[in-house]
Simulated scan of single mutants.
Amino acid sequence: MQEFQIDPRLERDSMAIADLGLCQLRLMRDARWPWLLAVPQRVGITEMFQLAPLDQTMLTFEVNEAAKALSGVTGAAKINVAAIGNIVRQLHVHIVARFAGDANWPGPVWGYGTPEPRPEDDSEALARRITEAMAHS
């Protein structure tokens, strides 16, 4: 049986901050937006409908919990949630905090501009605030 492995691009572009049960929750390293990824830890899954029904329910629950925590921590005007996967096929759900006037507002974050590295201490502080918010919800 194959073991779950994160796609190398997701590994490079984000850092793991929590295991939620089904999903590995990751924080994108791009400092332009507070941006999470929820990656179901299932081998070979590229689409939500490929998940077992209980996993589909867990994915929805975990994404919503992460989105609620991200919203509370950042005070975002809008939380964008999407699973696109045209480049990285492994199923992953983007959870992005958006603000009026942020990079490319109100347009999409995907493919816009050049990523700006988030300093490691900023990443760790944001990750801690998000996971603490999730623990208290």
Rank of each mutant, 00 (worst) to 15 (best):
L54F: 10
F4P: 04
P53G: 12
L10G: 02
D30L: 10
A16P: 02
S71K: 15
Q50C: 12
R128K: 10
W105A: 06
G111Q: 02
S137K: 13
M1N: 04
E65I: 07
A135Y: 14
P108F: 13
G101C: 11
L22P: 01
T60S: 15
S137I: 12
R9V: 12
S71I: 08
N64Y: 15
G85N: 05
I87A: 09
I45T: 07
M48T: 00
E62W: 13
A127I: 03
A18H: 03
I6T: 04
E120V: 13
W33V: 03
Q56G: 06
R26T: 06
V63G: 05
R98Q: 03
D121T: 12
A38L: 06
N86K: 01
H136K: 13
E132L: 13
G107K: 05
L36R: 03
L54H: 09
A133R: 07
M1H: 10
P119E: 13
L91N: 07
L27I: 03
A82M: 06
I84M: 04
H136C: 10
R9P: 00
V73S: 06
V93Y: 12
M1Y: 11
A135D: 12
I6R: 12
T57V: 10
M58S: 15
M1E: 08
E3R: 09
I130Q: 01
Y112H: 11
M48G: 00
H92C: 01
E3T: 06
V109S: 10
V81E: 03
N86C: 01
F4E: 02
I45G: 02
M134D: 14
M28F: 15
I6E: 12
N86M: 04
N80C: 12
P8E: 12
V43L: 09
A125D: 06
V73F: 14
L51N: 02
A100C: 05
I95R: 10
P115Q: 11
S71Q: 15
V43S: 10
A18R: 00
K78T: 03
G75H: 11
P34S: 10
W110C: 04
R129G: 08
V43R: 10
F4V: 01
A38Q: 03
H94I: 08
A83G: 06
E11Y: 14
L51Y: 12
A67I: 02
E65T: 01
S14V: 01
Y112T: 05
A67S: 03
L59M: 07
W33F: 03
R89E: 07
A52W: 12
A100E: 09
P34A: 13
E65F: 08
D30H: 09
I79P: 02
Q56V: 11
V93M: 15
V39C: 08
M15P: 00
E116N: 00
I87D: 02
I130D: 05
A83K: 05
V63D: 00
A16D: 09
A83R: 07
R29K: 10
T60H: 15
S137Y: 13
